[in-house]
Simulated assay, not measured.
Amino acid sequence: MMDKEQAKAKAKQAKGKIKETAGDATDNPRMETEGTAEKMTGKVQETAAKATERMKREKR
Rank of each mutant, 00 (worst) to 15 (best):
V44G: 11
A7E: 07
T21N: 05
K12I: 03
K12E: 07
T47I: 01
K12N: 01
T41L: 13
Q13S: 04
K10A: 10
K39G: 06
T26Y: 04
E32G: 00
K10H: 11
R60S: 14
R57V: 10
Q45E: 15
E20W: 04
K8L: 00
T26A: 13
M40G: 02
A7T: 06
M55W: 04
K17Q: 09
A14C: 07
K15L: 12
R30Q: 08
K59S: 02
M31A: 14
G16L: 03
E20Y: 02
E38S: 09
T26G: 05
E38G: 03
V44N: 09
M1T: 05
A14P: 01
G35I: 01
E58H: 06
A48K: 14
D27Y: 09
T36R: 11
K17L: 10
A14S: 12
K56N: 03
A37L: 14
K39P: 01
A7D: 02
M1R: 07
A49R: 04
A9G: 08
M40Y: 09
T47E: 13
K59M: 05
T26H: 05
K43N: 10
P29K: 09
A51K: 15
E5Y: 07
K12L: 14
M2R: 15
E20A: 04
E53H: 02
A25S: 15
A49L: 07
A14Q: 12
E58C: 14
A11T: 02
T21P: 00
E46T: 01
Q13H: 05
K10V: 13
A9K: 08
K50F: 07
M31R: 09
A37P: 00
K19H: 02
A49K: 08
E32Q: 12
T26S: 11
D24Q: 06
R54N: 04
K19N: 02
A22Y: 04
M1W: 04
T26W: 06
T33M: 14
E20D: 03
Q13M: 15
T52R: 12
D3E: 08
D24S: 08
K4S: 09
T47H: 08
R54I: 13
R60C: 02
P29R: 11
E53M: 03
E53R: 03
E38Y: 02
Q6Y: 00
K17W: 06
K4C: 10
T41H: 13
N28D: 14
T47M: 10
T52K: 15
E46P: 06
M31L: 12
P29D: 10
K8P: 00
A49T: 05
K43H: 11
R30I: 15
E46G: 09
A48G: 07
P29N: 10
A51D: 10
K4L: 12
K43A: 15
A51L: 15
D3G: 01
D3T: 03
T33V: 14
K12V: 03
A7F: 02
A11L: 10
V44T: 15
E46F: 13
A9Q: 08
E20S: 04
K12A: 12
M55G: 06
